[in-house]
Design a binder for these strands. Sequence first.
RNA 1: GGCGAAGUAGCUCAGUUGGCGAGAGCACGCGGUUCAUACCCGCGGUGUCGGCGGUUCAAAUCCGUCCUUCGCUACCA
Length: 660
Amino acid sequence: MSKKPYYITTAIVYTSGKPHIGNTYEIVLADSIARFKRLEGYDVYFQTGTDEHGQKIELKAEEAGITPREFVDKTAGQIKDIWDLMNSSYDKFVRTTDTDHEKQIQKIFKKLYEQGDIYKGYYEGMYCNPCESFFTSSQLVNGKCPDCGREVQPAKEEAYFLKLSKYADRLIEHIKTYPEFIQPESRKNEMMNNFLIPGLQDLCVSRTSFTWGIPVDFDPKHVVYVWLDALSNYITGIGYDADGNNSEQFKKFWPADLHLIGKDIIRFHTIYWPIILMALDIPLPKQVFGHPWLMQGSAAEKMSKSRGNVLYADDLVKLFGVDAVRYFVLHEMPFDNDGIISWELLVERMNSDLANTLGNLVNRTISMSNKYFDGIVSDGKTTEAVDEELKTLALETPRKVKAKMDKLRVADAISEIFTLFKRCNKYIDETTPWILAKDEDKKSRLETVLYNLVEGICIGASLLESFMPETAAKILDQLKAKSRTLEEVKTFGLYPSGTRVTQNPEILFARLDLKEVLEKVEVEQLEPEKEKAEQDTVTKEETLEVIDIEAKPEITYDDFTKLQFQIGEIIACEEVKKSKKLLCSQVKIGSQVKQIVSGIKAYYTPEEMVGKKVMVVVNLKPATLAGILSEGMLLCAEDSNGNLALMVPEKPMPAGAEIQ
RNA sequence: GGCGAAGUAGCUCAGUUGGCGAGAGCACGCGGUUCAUACCCGCGGUGUCGGCGGUUCAAAUCCGUCCUUCGCUACCA
C-alpha cells in the first residue's frame, strides 16, 4: 500500500536580512505539521526556501561591496542555519536563484505571453526604490511611499502585465465552492470584499529598472518581477515543467495540501497565485493558511524599545533551548488573532509547563524506579480501579491530538499532550508509591504503578515528538524506550516489561528565575543596543542638518513662471470628517477666498491653523479630495520622518502678496 | 469613509446552533504530601462576560446603538 502524499510549504523568505521571530514561528509551525503527518503515515514533502531577487538586494549588495549572488548566498545560508537550529525537517530548501527554477520561470513567462495572458504595456506612477513598488500619486502619503515613508520618484516603465480579470470569476467561484481554501475565514472576507468584488487590476510581472532577477528571455531588458518568480517556487521546487515534462515528484505531490504563510501575504497567495495556476492550467492548492503574528507585549516591549520590535530566534535559543522556543511559539500562538510574546510569558511557560509538569514528572518517575527497583521497570499486573482513568486518558489523547491537528489547531494539540502529563502527576499522588514501597507485600502493585507511569510518559513523549523532537528523544532515551507511531500509540502496554531505565536522569528543563533572565538579556543585548543607539544618534543628527533628495530634471525659467505662489491667510479650518489625514481650510488670498484641502491633520489642529499666513500654490488645477473641492495647495517642508512644517513668511506680509 | 474582527477573572485566552448556579491555564491564598527540579495533588475567591436599549420563559451567546482596540482597504494638491 503506497502512502498518501502530503505536500506542505512555508513562504520563502526574502534574503535581505536576518529572519525575525515571525519567520521562525512559521517554520516551526510547518515543521510540526509536517512531522505529525509523517507520524500519521503520510508521505510528506516539506518545502521551504528563499526569495532572492529584486532591486533591494541589488542595492544592499552594492552597499556591502559584493555581488548580489554573494550577498544572497550569505543571507540564504544564515536563514538555512536558523532553520536547522530550530530543528526543522524540511525536505527541500528551494532558492529562486536555482538554475532549474530560473529556467522554468522563463518558460512559464513565455508560455503565458504566447497564450495572451501576459501582455506588454506601460507602468506609470511614482516609484519607491527600497520598496520596489510603484504607486499611483493618489496612493502616496504626503507625497511619500505609503509603505516606508521615503521619497518616491516619478517613473514610467515598459512592463508586462498578467491579465487577472480574465480569471476573476473562476476564482470567486472556487473560493465559494471550497470554503476551506482560505483560512482563517476572516481573511477570505477581506479578499472578497476588497479585491475580488470591486474588480481586479492587472498585475505587473516584469521590471526594467533593475537587473538582479530572472531575465525575460525573449525581451532581455526585462526581468521577471517578484510574485511570478517567488510564488512559482511551489511548483518548480518539485519539478514542474512548463513544456509538460513534469517530474514524477510533481505528479505525486501537486496540488499542494497546504501553503502556510503569514497573514500579510494572503492576497498574493489567494488571488495572484491561483490565477497564475489557472492560466497554466494546473490545479489549485487545497488550502492557504494565513497565520497571525507573535507581537512583543507589555513589559517586553518597554524593555526592548530601543531595539525595535524584533526578537531573534537564535538569541532565544541561546537562553532557553530549541524545544522551549518551539514549545513557546506553538503554544502561545492563537489561531486567528496575533499572539503575545514577552520574557515574562516565556519564563512562565518554561517553568510551569516544561520544568514543573513535564521535566519533573519524568525525573521523579525515573528516580522512583531506581530507588525501588534498581531501575528495572516491569509490569506487576496488580491493577486497581485508579489505573483505568490514566489508561483511558492515555488512549484518548492520540485521537484528541489528531482531531486538533486536522483543524491546524496546533496549540490545542499540544495542550492535549500536557493534559496527559498532568494526569500522570496526579496518578502518582493517587497511588502514593512511597507508601507502597514501605510494604513488601505491595511490591507488585508498586511495580504496576511505575510501569503504568512509564507507559503513559512513553505515549505522551511519542506524541510530543512532532512538536519538541529533541525533548521527546531525550525522554524516550532515558526510559530506554522506542518512539511509537500514531498507530502504536493506540495500545497501552507496549513498553517491554523488565527494561532498565537510566541511572542518571538528566534534568530536561531547569527552572528559570525571571530576574536572572532579564539580567542576562540586558547583558546580551547591551552591545547591539549600544551600537544601534549610536547609529541612531548619528543618523538623527545628520537628518537634522541636511536632507538630500533625488534631483528632478532641470526646468527653464519659463517653466517656473507658470507656477503662481501667493501668501494666503487661513481664516477658517475644519477637519474633513470622512478622512483621517485631511484638513479643509478657507484661505484668504487677496480679496478672494479659496478652499484648500491638505493632508496635515496629523501635524496641525484646525484651531492652530486659523490665523496663519502660509505659502500657497494658487493656480493648481482644482481637485476633489474625499468629496471636497480643493482649489490650491499649502506648501510644507518635510523631514526624513515625514514631519511637516508649513512655510510661513519671515516678516509679516498681507494675504495675497505674490511670492517669486 | 468601506468591509471585517475583537473587547469574558490580576495575566494569556476557551466559550458549538441562546438554557441547569459563567470556564481553563498561570499567578494568588489555604490545606495535604515528600518519590521529585521549593515539586506534585486538593480546595478557594474575585469577574455588572465593553456601555446602553431591545427580542425571549431564558442571552456572554440574537437585534439595534454607542465607546475602545485591531486588521484589510480607500481618500491623502
